[in-house]
């Protein structure tokens, strides 16, 4: 079912989230989006814990992950995903303001699928979100399903 193809956006910044969702809405992708506000929520969502314990459905087809997050930062979330059976194959895209080499290196070392710097210029930002959404939600074939 189409509704099962979910995108998880992990973003603490309301403004960025709004702009992101605006863009996805424009391309009819917003209905498939779930949002986590920090690293902890993101992991809860994935592992169906606490407020997400009732969530049904499979793993998201892609996670758009910010790095600077409250509680648990994006890189730590990524590390946990990559070290957990049943989750390690979920495509993860880091979507962040930082162009710091340190972050880039660590992201790729941990096995991120793509690293996208949020452009300041709005149109570019919108283009980036649009391409990511279309690519990961429509074009890309997700990894074979695993028992969670």
């Amino acid at each position: 079912m189409e509704s099962l193809k979910r995108i998880l956006i992990v973003e603490d910044n309301e403004n960025d989230l709004e702009l992101t969702l605006d863009t996805l809405t424009e391309y009819n992708l917003a209905n498939n989006v779930d949002v986590a506000r920090d690293g902890e929520e993101a992991l809860d969502y994935l592992f169906k814990k606490n407020k997400f314990s009732a969530r049904d459905g499979n793993n998201p087809i892609v996670i758009l992950l910010d790095i600077k997050l409250p509680k648990i930062n994006g890189l730590e979330v990524l590390k946990t995903i990559r070290n957990t059976d049943g989750y390690k194959k979920i495509p993860v895209v880091i979507l962040t303001s930082s162009r710091e080499e340190k972050d880039l290196n660590e992201g790729y070392t941990l096995g991120v699928n793509a690293y996208v710097v949020k452009p300041v210029e709005f149109n570019s930002f919108a283009d980036a979100i649009k391409s990511l959404g279309i690519f990961w939600a429509i074009v890309n074939e997700p990894p074979p399903k695993t028992i969670s």
Binding site: N13, N15, D16, L19, D22, I67, K68, T96, S97, S98, R99, E100, K102, K118, P119, V120, E121, F122, N123, F125
Partner: peptide
Amino acid sequence: SYSVSHDLRAPLRHIIGFSQK
């Protein structure tokens, strides 16, 4: 410089984004 990289650019992005909106 790390926090500049992360945090200083976000408001600018928002200014631009919302201005366009």
